[in-house]
């Protein structure tokens, strides 16, 4: 079995917000959030809308997305009960048949047992680094989107890269 594939994702933008009226504010602007805490949904314009717990959200899309820029400007106006959460996260994507096995080395979550149809969001530690993880499947292959604080980004990228190389060496004939 081949080694997992790792990609450092660039060119994405995140818009984070939280607060008692955050969900209502987004709904009023036509952005429907997941109903269940700690899940995500695919929105319009190729957005991923992530719900962290009860009242915190972030939207992920291409950095050039003008609709997100518009939303960001409206958030800056300070709607009551809606608090901006500036996010400069690094995003890493890990894909492949052995991705679960690799993640088992650094996270105490049984990723293999997750039902991706439910679009879960996992907040956990990987090698001691706080991460937000969104697993999904495409054509039967599992991919993990992994977001982390940018000051931990280089460390997490190095750790995952080290593991991918180790798995690559094991897979070499």
């Amino acid at each position: 079995m081949s080694a997992p594939r790792l990609e450092l994702v660039r060119g994405r933008a995140l818009l984070g917000l939280k607060g008692p009226r955050a969900q209502a504010w987004l709904a009023a602007l036509g952005v429907a959030v997941p109903q269940v805490p700690n899940t995500w949904r695919a929105g319009a314009n190729s957005w991923s809308i992530v719900r962290l717990g009860a009242a915190e959200f972030f939207l992920d899309t291409d950095a050039a997305d003008e609709a997100l820029a518009t939303l960001r400007a409206q958030l800056r106006a300070g709607p009551p009960g809606v608090y901006p959460v500036p996010r400069e996260d690094w995003e890493l994507r890990l894909a492949g048949a052995r991705a679960d096995e690799m993640l088992a080395e650094i996270a105490a979550i049984d990723f293999a047992a997750l039902d991706t149809d439910a679009k879960p969001i996992i907040m956990t530690l990987m090698a001691g680094i706080a991460v937000v993880v969104a697993p999904y499947e495409t054509a039967g292959e599992r991919t993990y989107r992994i977001w982390c604080d940018p000051t931990f980004g280089p460390a997490l990228n190095e750790i995952l890269g080290t593991l991918v190389r180790a798995y690559d060496e094991c897979a070499a004939p």
């Binding site: 400069e88 080395e105 650094i106 090698a127 001691g128 680094i129 940018p150 000051t151 931990f152 280089p154 460390a155 750790i159 080290t162 593991l163 180790a166």
Partner: peptide, 14 residues
Amino acid sequence: AGRNFHVERRTPLD
């Protein structure tokens, strides 16, 4: 010890 990952935080200006 395992793979002995050493996590170091780096500022944006690092």
